[in-house]
Simulated assay, not measured.
Amino acid sequence: MISNRTAESAQAEVASKGRRVEEQIVARATSDGANVKLLRVFGGQGPERFDPFLMLDEFGSETADDYIGGFPPHPHRGFQTVTYMLQGKMEHRDHMGNVGLLNDGAVQWMNAGSGIIHSEMPKQTEGKMRGFQIWLNLLSGKKMSPAYYKDIQADLIPEYLLEGVYVKAIAGEMELLGSTVKGYFSVEDTDAQFMDIHLQPGFELSVPVSSGYTALVYTYDGEVTLTDKYVPAKAQTLSRLVDGDNVLVSNASDAVARVVVLAGKPLREPIVQHGPFVMNSVEEINQAIADYNAGTLAES
């Protein structure tokens, strides 16, 4: 049953300033890297409506042929990547000599900045590999910042057990059910929030999102409903919510539902993307391509 205290407090907030579902997207099957099969949740066309986020991929398979090719060396410039492993092992290597291994529950935060060349290769030949990669935009004045990489193992990522709710707090800070939930990472400029939230059957949760911030909910296991209208959001569905100061997420099913919540302050700057480069103008993209071809994009 829905917790009365949880439901009543959540509904009270939503009644006055809850967000509404503006758009829903069903993740589509595609491949990337060396034919790695994945789900592209969003990315590419019309990125401004997800600002400051640029892309979200879900990857996951129990068949090694779907992921074993990995992502051989490739360049990036102008944004950050966040990789969150639910299950599996992935090795990172880059031109700066960094080597890191992502295990179950670990997070990699990489600033491509002015340029990085890296690879992401599976370190397993069987078993399930599942996780997410997010591309987070950089302010124009920081697109040419020095590249860096951080590999954070699962036991360092804050976890919270609240009433009917489990939260793995990767980035940002928010108040949930009277508790301050603080992620491992604090993000400048965009104040990005990245939470992995599991709802027990019959529970509701009001997730605060500052007015004017982008708010995205991706259901990856089970099914939830959103807002006081109880709009259904099935597995592999992204919901973009607008207006108001919070998002009501409800689980009326008989199984645990798991969602990723992304929120952040839009940069409101031009977005020009060409493959692995995201800049503010076509001229900057052309320069990135020229630098890569000349071998100067990623200079230590």
Rank of each mutant, 00 (worst) to 15 (best):
R268M: 13
G295M: 07
L139C: 01
S140K: 15
I68S: 09
E58A: 10
Q87A: 12
F194T: 00
K265V: 02
R28T: 13
T219L: 01
T63N: 14
R93G: 03
S9A: 12
G18I: 00
S239A: 15
V165Y: 02
T30E: 15
H92M: 09
T83F: 02
F185Q: 00
M110P: 00
M1P: 09
L177K: 13
A7T: 14
P266D: 05
L161F: 08
D254N: 14
Q193H: 08
L262A: 09
S281E: 01
D196Q: 05
N103V: 06
P72K: 11
A169V: 01
A235W: 04
R258T: 12
M90V: 15
L267Q: 02
I197N: 00
A288D: 08
T225E: 14
Q45S: 14
G88C: 07
T237S: 06
N251P: 09
A106F: 04
V181M: 04
P47Y: 10
T180K: 12
E188M: 06
L162A: 09
S16L: 13
E126F: 08
A12C: 05
L177N: 06
R93F: 04
L248N: 02
I152C: 00
R258A: 14
H274S: 10
Y218S: 07
V272N: 01
D65K: 15
T219V: 14
D191Q: 13
G141M: 11
W135K: 03
K17M: 11
I289E: 02
L139K: 15
N280P: 03
D57I: 09
L205R: 03
Q273L: 02
M85S: 07
N251M: 11
E58Q: 15
N111F: 01
A235F: 03
G183W: 01
N280Y: 07
K143Q: 10
V260M: 15
I152T: 09
A192C: 01
R20D: 02
A290V: 06
G44T: 05
D66Q: 07
S253E: 11
G131S: 07
L262G: 09
M55D: 04
K142S: 11
F132T: 10
D228F: 10
A27C: 08
E120C: 05
V187F: 10
Y184N: 01
P52F: 05
P266Q: 09
F42S: 02
F59N: 05
G88P: 08
N280C: 01
G78K: 04
Q24D: 08
H92W: 10
F203S: 09
Y67V: 04
L176A: 06
V224Q: 03
A29G: 10
L86D: 01
G100V: 02
V99D: 05
G222N: 10
G100T: 04
I285F: 00
L162F: 01
E175D: 12
A290L: 10
A233C: 14
M90L: 15
Y84R: 00
V261A: 06
D57N: 13
Q236W: 12
L39T: 03
D189S: 08
V242R: 10
E204I: 06
G44H: 05
N98R: 06
R5Q: 14
F194W: 11
G172E: 02
D57Q: 05
F194P: 00
N280G: 02
I134Y: 05
V259M: 07
A257R: 02
L161D: 12
N280L: 06
Q193D: 01
V217T: 12
R240D: 08
R28Q: 15
F42R: 03
N111A: 11
A169M: 04
A112Q: 07
